[in-house]
């Protein structure tokens, strides 16, 4: 079943600095199946983040429609959780309070919230840090909190906007493996935006290549490498390398 359908989506905005109209996306149509891990890859300026923001309801479509679970997206909602590149944690809240923010604003009781945050923080290995503030955490830990916070609402759709772009390479690999393990147990539909081809192929069931100005969908590739995937195996995996090459070719052919 399709959880998300984008139909002929255009996005234009006025660049106030250059006083020119920018067409970020043109005629984007795609659908995403429930439970899929979809990566969107493309060069900067291809409209991939813009698309994610429109799905989140943070930015309106200029024309066309985006529907999630059959309902047209008009504003942000707890059914679409988001993970940000710069973490966007609330520095005045503890780790646990950050994770509990979603349930709190939706009126979940304190006791239930505490249980929920405990469970989620255990899942990402940070329960010992629940009373710490974000500034005490490393980048990788912050993003684990970011993921736990987004998952606390049990969203239908998890939107991840270059979530591991700000952490070092070693931690990134670790977080990628964790993400696939977590996803294997939760089966939440994920839309993951990245500019790294390796990351996209490693994580995804399906890679969407965006490109051009205005941005559009230029390739749609299935990734059927067995899971669980490990970086130690991927390096020599023929299928992985073939797919990576294919996506690289697609990105450069734009």
């Amino acid at each position: 079943m399709d959880i998300l359908v984008a139909d002929k989506v255009d996005k234009t905005y006025l660049d106030e600095r250059t006083l020119s109209k920018v067409m970020a996306l043109r005629g984007l149509s795609l659908s995403i199946q429930e439970g899929q891990f979809v990566c969107i890859v493309g060069p900067s300026g291809c409209g991939k983040t813009t698309f994610l923001h429109m799905v989140a309801g943070l930015s309106p479509v200029t024309s066309g429609t985006i529907t999630v679970d059959g309902r047209q997206v008009r504003r942000p909602g707890a059914d679409r959780g988001m993970v940000f590149q710069d973490y966007a944690l609330f520095p005045w809240k503890t780790v646990a309070e950050n994770v509990e923010f979603g349930p709190k604003v939706r009126g979940v009781r304190a006791k239930e919230r505490a249980e929920l945050s405990r469970k989620l923080l255990q899942t990402v290995g940070l329960d010992d840090f629940r009373d710490r503030f974000p500034k005490d955490l490393s980048g990788g830990m912050k993003q684990r909190v970011g993921v736990a916070r987004a998952l606390a609402n049990e969203p239908r759709l998890l939107l991840m906007d270059e979530p591991f772009a700000s952490v070092d390479a070693m931690t990134r690999m670790e977080l990628q493996e964790e993400t696939t393990r977590l996803w294997a147990t939760l089966k939440t539909t994920v839309i993951f935006v990245t500019h790294s081809v390796e990351e996209a192929v490693f994580l995804a069931d399906r890679v969407l290549v965006f490109g051009g100005r205005p941005g559009r969908l230029t390739a749609d590739l299935a990734v059927d490498i067995d899971r669980p995937r490990k970086w130690t195996e991927m390096e020599t995996d023929a299928q992985f390398n073939a797919l990576r090459k294919r996506v690289v070719d697609e990105v450069h052919s734009i």
């Binding site: 989140a56 309801g57 943070l58 942000p76 909602g77 707890a78 679409r80 959780g81 988001m82 940000f84 710069d86 966007a88 944690l89 609330f90 923010f101 979603g102 604003v105 939706r106 916070r149 987004a150 606390a152 609402n153 939107l159």
Partner: peptide, 15 residues
């Protein structure tokens, strides 16, 4: 106040 912080709150269901 960073826009992303506001965006985070909105996507978490805050009014």
């Amino acid at each position: 106040v960073q826009q992303n912080m506001i965006n985070a709150a909105l996507t978490l269901g805050a009014n």
